[in-house]
Design a protein around this nucleic acid. Structure first.
Length: 271
DNA sequence: AATCGCGCCTGACGGC
DNA sequence: TGCCGTCAGGCGCGAT
């Protein structure tokens, strides 16, 4: 499941192949993603050069001078760059072909992803306009989280997963960050001190940067690969480790449901 | 306003 | 072996 580090890694991986290149053809085999892919996407995109490959939250933005292609990878999506012709396989829903024979191929088993065309300033689009700060930016700090959490009774884990508060903290990294910060994921967001939020902001950045570094290594050979990119290479300390001993104190990691999400933590180390 | 819970979708996995 | 139920999860949206 692409979390922010995977999306950033994919952005870096595809950028050198498509930046500055002109779209020659768009093949949509399965328009039914989270929302239907616009029927006129090919008309909009063909003949346009992609002059920038950006990321905002987990959205990829391919900018042209007449509009922006927005791509979200949902739970199971990934993008590959093909330099050699290659028959599409199962769940290869879209090909975007560029001058020079480069093909950007979207594969998404569960189709929770999206591919939309945005006119005008993409940052004003409803999907992007209300988003909180990027977790790797200066804006995310303890003071910011503390201020936003005032009076809120919501548990801290769903609080930091709320994209209006901060973007890009998915279920896995939320559990990992709270473990590193020693914070009980069920604790009300408004009942956490400024000092602990300083620590939380710091470890969120740390965890994401480590994952980006790991992804950069595994995805070095980005194009023309057959299988999926190597996600999940990061050492996870609590996620998916229920019943196993905590790496700090040895007590069993527990798994609970919090806001319909599996949540993993150590009752001893996280208060 | 804040919070909760649903639904989209497929594949892996466990039980019988 | 096959069938069926359950789980996983990002995230917008409607309900409370």
């Amino acid at each position: 499941m692409p979390e922010l580090p995977e999306v950033e890694t994919i952005r870096c991986g595809i950028e050198p192949f498509i930046k500055g290149r002109c779209v020659t053809q768009v093949v949509v085999r399965t328009p039914r993603l989270r929302w239907p892919i616009p029927a006129d996407l090919a008309n909009r995109l063909c003949g346009q050069a992609v002059y920038e490959v950006e990321r905002r939250a987990k959205y990829l933005l391919l900018r042209t001078k007449v509009g922006t292609l927005l791509i979200h990878l949902g739970m199971s999506g990934f993008l590959r760059v093909l330099q050699q012709p290659h028959a599409p396989g199962k769940h290869d829903h879209v090909d975007i072909e560029f001058a020079g024979g480069i093909c950007l191929r979207l594969n998404d088993v569960r189709r929770f992803g999206a591919m939309l065309w945005l006119d005008g300033d993409p940052m004003h689009h409803p999907l992007l306009a209300g988003l909180g700060p990027e977790p790797l930016s200066e804006e995310l700090g303890g003071a910011y989280l503390y201020q936003r959490s005032k009076g809120r009774r919501l548990a801290v884990k769903p609080f930091i997963m709320d994209s209006k508060v901060v973007v890009g903290v998915g279920n896995i990294y939320a559990s990992e960050s709270l473990f590193r910060a020693g914070i009980d994921p069920t604790r009300a967001a408004g009942r956490i001190s400024l000092a602990r939020y300083h620590r939380l902001a710091e470890v969120i950045r740390q965890v994401l940067l480590e994952a980006i570094a790991a992804g950069g290594t595994t995805l070095r050979d980005f194009s023309d690969q057959d299988g999926r990119p190597g996600y999940f290479t990061q050492q996870l300390q609590v996620y998916g480790r229920d019943g196993q001993p905590c790496s700090t104190c040895g007590q069993d990691i527990v798994k609970i449901q919090l806001g319909q999400r599996s949540t993993y933590f150590c009752r001893q180390c996280q208060r």
